[in-house]
Structure formats: C-alpha cells, structure tokens
Amino acid sequence: MWSRYTHDALILAQCTDASAEDLARRQQYPERLAPVVSDRVCNWYLPVFDNPFYGGLMTIFRLADHMQREFGIASRFLICGPTDTSRTRESIGSTFASLSGSSVIALDTPTATANVPFADYSVATLWTTAYVLLGVKNAGLKFYLVQDFEPLFYPAGSTYAQAELTYRFGFYGIANTQSLKDIYENTYGGRAVVLDPCIDTSIFYPDESLRPRSPRRLFYYARPGVPRNCFELAANALKLLKERRGDAIEIVCAGAQWQPAEYGLHGVVRSIGMLPYAQTGDLYRSCHAGLALMMTKHPSYLPFEMMGCGAIVVANQNDANTWLLRDRVNSLVSPPTATCLAENLDFALSDAPELEAIRAAALETIRGRHGDWSRSLDVVCRFMLAVGGDE
C-alpha cells in the first residue's frame, strides 16, 4: 500500500531540500524594486502541467493577467521541470491575450535554475516550487500563492513535513480562502492577503430550462486515486442512491479518465472524463445537484461553479469550509458516511419545496462575493504593492 509513497517520498526528499543557511537567509528585499511600478516584472514558479484551464492554474493566470492589464507588471512563467515552452506559451496566450508575449522558461537543469532572471516579484505556486524560490537570491519580494493546505495531500511523514516547512520560508502569503490565511498567519507566523475564489460568470450562470424533468441528473466530481476527494465513500453512496432511485436518476462523472467497471460502478454512473473548461457550465446547468467532496482546507472551485449554475451542492462536513457551505441554507452538508451521503443526495434530487430556497441562497452567495474576479484580484495586487512600500 505504501510502497509507491516511499518511492516518491525518497525522490522528493532528495530533490526538494534546504540547508540551515537557506532557511536563515533574508528573503525580502523591497529596496530592489524598480521605482516605477509598470517597469516591474513578476516571476511565477509553476509545476509541470498539461492543462492550464482548470482550478488553481487558471487562478494563477488570472492574477498575472490582472497585474499586466491594470498595473503594467509583466510576467515570466518558470516551469519547475521539463516542458515544451512553446506549447505552454501558446496555451496561456490563447486564453489571456495580455500574457501572449510572456516568457516561459523551463527550469529543467541546475544551470537553468541558477540563472533565473531577476524579478521584482516572485511567486511560488505549489510547495515544491517554494523550495526552488527559496534558493533564488536575485529577487525583490517573494510570495507564496497558497491554494490549499498541501501537507494534507500526503500521509503524516516525510513529504508532509517537507510541504509544511514551506509555510515558514518567510514569503508573503496569497491565501485562496480566509481559512488558509488564518492558518498561514496564526500557525506559521506569516503575513498574507485573501484572494477570494470567484467564478467566470460568462461560463457559470443558471438556466433551469436545461435541467430535464426526468431523469433527475446528478453530477459527481470523481477522481479515483486522489484521497482528499473521498472517492471510496462517494462510490458506495452512489451505489446506494442508484439502488434506491434506479432509472429515475442519471449520475454523470467528470474530472479524470477512469472506467466505472473497474470500481464496481458499471450501470451506476457514466464517466465522461475531462471536459473543456468552457463546456463545464453547460454540464452543471443540466444537473439538479452536484456532489463535491474535499477533506483538505479548501472546498475546491467545484462548489462555487455548481452553485453559480443553479445545482444543489452536496458536500462533506469540513470545518475549514463552513465560511462558504452552510447546511440547509445554501447547500447540503453531510456526515462522511456512505449512507448519510446517499440520503442527502436523494433529498437534493427530490421535489422538496425547500430546495428552491437553498438554490436561491447559493446563487446569492456567489453573486454577493464570488462573482467578480477583478475586485478579488485587485485586492491582491494592492497588497503586493503595499508590502513593497508603494501604497
């Protein structure tokens, strides 16, 4: 069971390392910033990725785009590993025109890492990239975009310890929820700003005419092999639900490529793999309810998007996410057992009149605080300017 973990942890222990000197070194140099804001450059340290159009990666590019358009701050994207830089540049520019001229550099050799160009701002975006940024000496201000409590991606052990240490590196935090900001400041002594998660309202909006009267449709964000998404609990809950409702419901899964038959779900769910980002809104609008489970400190973007499309969100109890998900108010929050989840899903797919009030409250939650990316991104940019003495 743990052999694969040990294999990966041994590699990470060797590749992501730091000395006592590294940890003691001063990290912030505001005096190095270019006097004129529009002359400044931001280096973004990213892991290797295939698709830039989902969740956390889109948030990174949205922030870089906002910095470029509103403040004139240019971006470089430093990929911490081997990558096709031309293809990556093309992918980013196809969605964010302001970033089409940005440099993309592969940090795939020690020489490339040692020769990172100077930047006024540098932002780590995953715990492994924080180790790369820790060793960079020709930087002005260093930041850490924290989009989840990443130690919980691993069992208590070597990799958990390495990931947790990054919160003590002395970088300014950009926390993707209030809960993450509280952790970064209160547990690890950092200073951070909240980057409120938002949705693209041109993609995620309600249209009840797309929801069929019958069968009732449920969406499930399914990623076998990603423990924090509780696939095993969900799979058993969906079996119970299907036994109860039969052909009166349709369960559609997306989020990863997998075969239902391999997990005993043949005839229970239909898996459609990965959808293009722009098509996900149509899928959510066609569903009466959506199941999104998360055991770490961030709810993921799925609840925001589904709430914005008018689907009733069913989620697991998670104290870190009560600021967003309120049981029987704007969502259904379930104890983490298969039977409890099945019962909540059954209710979400019913004709109960109180569901309309929940659906309306969910839409108001999104419109009130999570429907305006420009406001949220502007707060972060002004924080970055302020810690450098500009505001």
Rank of each mutant, 00 (worst) to 15 (best):
F219H: 12
V104H: 01
A289E: 02
A320I: 01
W2F: 11
A112L: 05
T111Y: 12
K297M: 07
N43D: 13
R89N: 13
L195R: 07
K142R: 15
S214V: 07
A156M: 10
K297P: 00
L165R: 15
I73E: 00
H66K: 11
R367I: 02
Y172G: 05
P303N: 14
R223E: 09
V379A: 15
M1Y: 05
M274P: 00
M307I: 04
L293G: 02
V314M: 04
Y284M: 14
E208N: 10
L210C: 10
A20H: 13
E250Y: 01
Y277T: 07
S300A: 13
A112E: 14
A156Y: 12
N236K: 14
D65A: 11
H66F: 01
E164G: 09
D200Q: 05
I272F: 01
G55M: 02
E70K: 15
A278I: 06
L349S: 02
I174G: 04
S75C: 08
A235V: 03
A163N: 05
A386M: 02
L355Y: 10
F61W: 04
T322E: 12
E356I: 09
R213W: 04
T59S: 14
D8E: 14
E364W: 04
M58D: 11
E343L: 10
A338R: 09
G170Y: 07
L302C: 07
L99H: 04
C381Q: 06
H266R: 15
I251S: 01
D327E: 14
P260E: 07
D319F: 13
P197V: 03
L238H: 02
A289S: 12
S122C: 14
K297S: 07
V268P: 05
R87L: 12
V123F: 01
W2M: 13
E31C: 09
M67F: 09
